[in-house]
Nucleic acid binder design. Structure first.
Lengths: 339, 339
DNA sequence: GTGAAAGCGCTAACAT
DNA sequence: ATGTTAGCGCTTTCAC
């Protein structure tokens, strides 16, 4: 039983005003630095507000201003390895602006996605960030005509919206150029499922740089496929590849393990480069894996800045923004001649 | 330029009332099934509400009811592999109750944690879930006396609060018993840093089951340490272990790789079991790794249920709740005699 | 069965 | 420089 029920009640601006012996509006002005106010009064009000632990009620503010200072981020990623870095970026940017982020993991379940969306709209979120780990995944149709700004991160939205995605082509180029700079020739590209848009985009960039007929092996995004690919490539006694550009770090890990099993030295006999720069994987292969980082946090930050601007009513040029990838050289490619 | 600015305005209950030709309070009653109301009127109001796309404004509701139907989850996990499954669990439970979740990644930065906390309090969250990936990490002191319920997930809060953590001792027992059931003896425990509470708890349970002097090798939570441990264990020509109980799947992966390098067969010569059931790792080792799953989603769900109850004013017995781990047998231990 | 009115906590015109 | 007042969208007595 509480001795005084009011002790646990949240402090309102009324409490502040009463305690400071001023009117509510003066208190409000003092706290928000609006209107004309006596410096002394302002300080007193502020001191008292702090003393009694006053926190402005966001609901009331939101009701008044029409903005809730919240955005939702809808994601299908169960696993988190892609989403969390992005969310961290988003959150970082929005935090400064006093905007909080609702995380809505849909686990690829449209029903969940829908429920979350409803909940977000009820909470009057100012904006939405839509994230999908598979670029070929369609955003829920309900997203089509919403009264609030929507930004796509790591997923390509319709042309009239703002999207931020990794620049897969540039990333692939980075990988291939690095292999070339390290003196490797006869590059083969071992990548994931053919029906992934990114797999194609990367393969295309790779071919543009190497040769239109350069070998691309589509398979799965797994270590197992990496190992299998090595079996296929190194089984016969034809000419062997000098370098393997892998579509993911997991594939690269499988590749490196299989090469090791065959006593083929990396990078001396064959160079390997990955894609994702997933540190738990890339740092633990033997040798540590050079890889392409998709700068997920930057994507998150950019997406955050975009919703923020949109929420403020500013206009942001629509379209797909491709964020440059970054080469992270470790030891699996040897040394580059230059830069 | 909008032809009609009102077209983009959010629909209010007033719009519904006007369109239905009833008063605001009747509309409210119709929508919420409160008060006495003519069935026909109710249906009409509801139909119209749906037609014009009315969504009740959560801010207004919150202002009235004192509850915001939001909770915050504060986490230090940058990486996501632990937090996302938990958050998914939390979210799943809260979604049904119409409560949304603010995700606050602090990246281990106390300043960020503090800012997030402020933002959450300003938004009048009904409750808080505190999550840390390292059990030895202190929650921010600001958490000490807050006017709202706080639940700890994957982190042990003070005794007067509600916490949900994996039952590490039971998990370790599960692992050891499985190894024994598969007929393995001379078990060694290769685990992570000695200053992690969990490492100790697991080691203790292991020793209680095997022998008080059973060998425990503390090191790091990395593959590299797993490989190193194998070097140490199998280098000389003393008696070799028959099974390795590893403190994490990453360690186990290092162990398996090193054993493979030494042409020691798993599980025939040496059995290996991991901890975490981190699928990307456990499913890709050769052979696939048997492991202990910490049921993170369940932890999240339980934590979600707890905040929910607390927010409703119900009482939840305080203290540490240890959630049972689950054995996930794959191929690295052989076959158990029984069960 | 329905409507009028008060009020949740706050801000912003408008008086004073 | 400060106070008064209206009102954001909604729920909830309480009249009718």
């Amino acid at each position: 039983m509480n001795r005084s029920p009011d002790l646990n009640r949240r402090r309102t601006i009324r409490d502040v005003a009463t305690a400071a012996g001023v009117s509510i509006s003066t208190a409000s002005n003092a706290l928000n630095d609006t209107g004309r106010i006596n410096a002394e009064t302002r300080e007193r009000v502020r001191r008292i507000a702090k003393e009694i632990g006053f926190r402005p009620n966001a609901a009331a503010r939101s009701l008044l201003g029409g903005r809730s200072h919240t955005v939702g981020i809808i994601t299908n990623d169960t696993y988190g390895r892609l989403v969390l870095p992005m969310t961290a970026g988003v959150s970082e940017v929005l935090l400064e602006a006093g905007v909080s982020v609702f995380l809505c993991p849909t686990n690829n379940d449209p029903r969940l996605a829908h429920l979350h969306l409803e909940a977000l709209l009820d909470k009057q979120v100012d904006g939405l960030i839509f994230t999908a780990t598979r670029l070929d995944l369609e955003p829920p149709p309900a997203l089509a005509d919403l009264p609030i700004p929507i930004v796509h991160a790591f997923s390509e939205g319709p042309p009239e919206r703002v999207s931020f995605v990794p620049d897969d082509a540039q990333g692939a180029e980075l990988a291939v150029r690095h292999l070339l700079a390290c003196g490797h020739r006869r590059i083969v590209h071992v990548t994931g499922e053919e029906n992934y848009v990114v797999a194609h985009r990367r393969a295309q960039a790779y071919r543009a740089l190497v040769s239109p007929e350069a070998r691309v092996m589509f398979g799965e995004w797994t270590e197992e496929w990496g190992r299998e690919a090595v079996e296929i490539l190194f089984a016969g006694d034809g000419e062997k590849p000098g370098a393997l550009f892998c579509g993911s770090d997991e594939i690269a890990r499988g590749v490196i393990d299989a090469l090791r099993d065959r006593r083929i030295r990396v990078p001396d006999d064959v160079a390997v480069i990955g894609f994702d720069n997933w540190e738990v994987v890339a740092r633990q292969t033997r040798p540590p894996l050079s890889s392409i980082d998709m700068e997920l946090k930057t994507i998150g930050r950019r997406a955050g800045e975009a919703v923020l601007a949109l929420c403020r009513g500013e206009t942001v040029p629509p379209g797909i923004n491709r964020i440059a990838c970054r080469l992270v050289p470790r030891d699996s490619c040897g040394r580059a001649d230059h830069d």
